[in-house]
Computed example of a mutant assay.
Amino acid sequence: MSLTFVLGGARSGKTRYALAEADRLAAEGGGRRVLLATAEALDGEMAARIARHQAERGPEWTTLEIPLALPRAVAALQPRDVAVIDCLTLWLSNLMHAEAEIAEETQALIAALHQSPADAVILISNEVGQGIVPDNALARRFRDEAGWMHQAIAGAVDRMVVIQAGLPQVLKG
């Protein structure tokens, strides 16, 4: 089992990088490609965005929409699966909206990752802590929770890659 964390800003190329890596690993191992999608189509623009991403991935990908129960979905992966989680910051937003305990959910995800029978899981997230301090309490809490979650995930994976302007920089592994 390999665990890779891909972190970058909006439109940095992190999803393209993660999907290419997953395609390579699935081709080598003969496994199923699984996308665990955390986004919800709550408006027309997001529905169109989700549809565009599904079309870009193609039919060889199995997409599971998992807005909240990510640890359970990771635990249910099958041997030889190569999974991409897209993305942790949307999952965090969903958890905050559901008033879930973020640290507990993060630890449950890490435990599921380490127990999963899948060949590989690639986790994608948005770096949100490099900008200015947000002007409201909710945005500051989101930024803080994302930073703590990212630190926990980075500590639990084999490989950590930061993407900037489409260029990967390996920080770990």
Rank of each mutant, 00 (worst) to 15 (best):
M96N: 08
N94P: 07
M160Q: 04
T4E: 09
V128N: 00
A39C: 10
Q130L: 03
Q54L: 02
E104I: 09
N136Q: 06
G9D: 12
I85E: 04
T15D: 09
E45N: 15
E101W: 08
L64Q: 11
D144R: 09
E21C: 12
W91H: 00
V161N: 04
E21V: 13
Q115H: 08
A39P: 01
R72T: 12
G155S: 10
H53S: 14
A103P: 10
M149K: 02
R80N: 06
R141C: 07
D86Q: 02
A76C: 03
A137Y: 04
G166M: 13
A111M: 10
L95Y: 05
E65M: 02
D158W: 04
R159E: 09
E28S: 14
E145P: 03
Q151E: 11
S93K: 15
H150W: 01
A20C: 11
K14M: 01
D135L: 09
L90D: 01
V84T: 09
M96G: 12
I110T: 02
I124Y: 07
D158T: 12
L19S: 07
Q151A: 05
G13Q: 09
I153H: 06
I102A: 03
A39N: 03
T106A: 13
E28C: 14
E45T: 08
G166A: 13
R33I: 05
T89A: 05
V162M: 08
E145S: 08
Q164H: 13
L88A: 10
M1W: 12
T4K: 05
A108E: 02
H53L: 15
R33C: 07
E104Q: 13
T4R: 03
V128S: 03
V84K: 06
K172P: 00
L92F: 08
V170H: 07
I132Q: 10
K172F: 07
L70R: 05
A111S: 12
A37N: 05
A22T: 02
I153P: 01
L113H: 02
I66F: 03
A120F: 12
P79D: 06
T4D: 04
R141H: 09
E65V: 10
V162N: 02
E28K: 15
G29T: 01
L138G: 10
M1E: 10
S125L: 07
A111L: 14
G13C: 15
A76G: 04
R32I: 14
K172R: 09
Q78N: 03
N136D: 06
A27N: 11
V84Q: 03
R159I: 06
H53C: 02
A75C: 15
R52D: 05
M149S: 12
D119Q: 08
A73I: 06
D86K: 03
L35H: 09
G131D: 10
A20H: 13
A47E: 08
R80W: 09
A112E: 13
L25F: 11
A165Q: 01
Y17C: 08
E40N: 04
P71D: 08
A39R: 04
E45G: 11
A120T: 12
G166T: 14
L35V: 15
Q54G: 05
I110F: 09
H114G: 11
R159P: 02
G31S: 14
D43C: 13
G13S: 15
E56K: 13
K14A: 00
R72F: 05
I124D: 11
Q130C: 10
E101Q: 00
S125P: 06
I132L: 07
L35A: 14
G129Y: 12
R80A: 06
Q151I: 11
E21T: 11
I50D: 03
